[in-house]
Amino acid sequence: MTCSEFLALLDELIDDSVSTETRTQLREHLSGCEHCEVTLNTTRKTIEIYRSHEVYELPNTVRDRLRAAIMARCKNGC
């Protein structure tokens, strides 16, 4: 397996949707290729960081105001 073949399957590997056979080939490539190992690990980390950190927060005061506005209109039949 070449690095570009590995890269083409990167998403499937991250999302855990590869066959056992393909997984073995991918692991084999990883064990001998530091570049792809770094790419895999740092891509996983990228996703994890975006999942665990709020990039855009909606403050509670704004939430309350928006909800009140929405519900007032709904109660009036919009």
């Binding site: 570009s4 890269l7 570049h35 770094v38 960081i49």
Partner: peptide, 27 residues
């Protein structure tokens, strides 16, 4: 599409930044 920066990251790199600074970087 072809990874160029192939340096490994520090372990838990997000811990090297303050919360606000990290959020700004991610944004």
């Amino acid at each position: 599409s072809v990874p160029r920066d192939l340096a490994d990251w520090s372990p838990n790199p997000e811990q090297n930044f303050g919360q606000a600074e990290l959020a700004e970087i991610l944004r």
